[in-house]
Design a protein around this nucleic acid. Structure first.
Lengths: 242, 242
DNA sequence: CGCTTCGTTGAACTGGGTCAACGCGTGTGG
DNA sequence: CCACACGCGTTGACCCAGTTCAACGAAGCG
């Protein structure tokens, strides 16, 4: 499973500016690389970790994308995140020492393993890294607030609009087009994430297209009227659009 | 606003076992107390911090309760937490250095101020405290997952049942009865939190009483049939029932 | 090819929202 | 000390957004 031939250093990793704190010296980066050397390839549909797995690593996504899913006692599931390159998985496992959710690759993906105990030790020595960890935790909490807001009281069209804008801004953040992208997840996952049904999501895609907000062809999306879509979404949940 | 006469040491604080990591030495506790000496009284309806306030402190609730609320760009609000004694407020403000939500006291309350920069320094010196901070962050994320699950696909009765069980277990954790308690928040806040309307919540309280799951009288709740209520809630979201 | 998964669309149904009335407690001012 | 108002909770009647059920086309894959 673990392919060390994939090993690429942090300093030339395509997502480095998202993973690394700004103020790290070259020496610090070198030390971080010692900790993060192991990479892993995960094929589409494979799980990165399962619910109940012992917590050992955080995972930084280098390429591809994942969904994280929690399973209720009655077997019902809830998609809690769509994770894109440069984002971190596994933070919610620290306190219980067990992953409360599972992460499944939506497409062929590669991740960087961050053994948390080693990271902890390094963070203890490098203040900037420590702060970066706090910052990631905190940012994660803030984003959850946005999702709560979305699921709490919003109509179906608002939810989908907000998701599209969110994903758009996250793609643009990593340097890709913010107006054209290919969703890596099926409609059912989008529906589950938004607390809707796949049918409703499908109808909304059609309606958005009819209203000239977007163009859709399967999973390929082009945002035609960003302003209109943002208005629908209510501007909040725009996250950080650099 | 800040009343230092309220100052009580951590070592005899009634919620200490919730705030403090297990493995702290007396010397470490003494040092922590240096950092956490300032207390604040917040009357019912007053805000502890507002959305947009600069991030300076975390707040540990000593007594009373709070709701945290995020405000969307369009002015719509979402209650994201009900915080009870022993719980921590303000973690989501670290990354942006600004509170993304506001916290309002649901009843007369008192909190303990934790200046984060000082806490950070201390945590750097005391590993157990560092781990406790990670743990609290992580636990917070895990709990958000549960709430997401709730708002995602659950019916109204399931949501309310899950909230009641959640609150019950949190009260029992701090040593109070898990079967009888007084909700400190109005119906409208419960409804907002659960993504429902006050009318629906009210009807559900009535229905639960009719079905002999609970007894309600205004905000006073007695859980009559915990098993039945748990089944309705789907067992998930039971959190930690010690 | 046939089979399965995915997306779309239509038609009918329903859970929860909306609107409106009312009751109860509390606080306030005459 | 009472009258009145205001906030909060409850209940009823109606309605609609989104679900459910079902059919069907398209795309990926053995």
């Amino acid at each position: 499973m673990i392919d060390s031939s994939v090993a690429v250093s942090c300093s030339n990793c395509s997502v480095r500016r998202l993973c690394l704190p700004a103020g790290l010296s070259q020496a610090d980066i070198d030390r971080l690389e010692q900790v993060t050397r192991r990479k892993k390839i995960v094929k589409a549909g494979e799980t990165l970790y399962r619910s109940g797995d012992p917590f050992a690593n955080l995972y930084a996504i280098r390429s591809g994308s994942f969904k994280t899913v929690v399973i209720a006692a009655d077997g019902d599931t809830q998609v809690t995140h769509f994770a894109l390159p440069g984002e971190l998985l596994g933070l919610d496992a620290y306190s219980s020492r067990v992953h409360p959710s599972y992460a499944k690759a939506l497409e062929d993906s590669s991740v960087c393993l961050l053994p948390f105990t080693q990271l902890e030790i390094l963070a203890h020595q490098v203040a900037a890294l420590q702060q970066q960890i706090y910052s990631i935790f905190s940012e994660e909490l803030r984003q959850e607030n946005d999702i709560l807001m979305l699921l709490g009281k919003r109509s179906a069209d608002t939810r989908l609009a907000a998701l599209l804008i969110n994903i758009s801004s996250r793609y643009s953040r990593r340097g890709y087009s913010h107006s054209e992208f290919v969703l890596s997840m099926p409609r059912t996952d989008i529906a589950n994430y938004l607390g809707l049904t796949a049918e409703t999501v499908s109808r909304l895609f059609s309606r958005f297209q009819r209203e000239n907000l977007i163009k859709v062809s399967g999973r390929a999306v082009e945002i035609v009227d960003l302003v209109g879509l943002s208005e629908l979404a209510g501007t909040h949940c725009g996250y950080d659009e650099d």
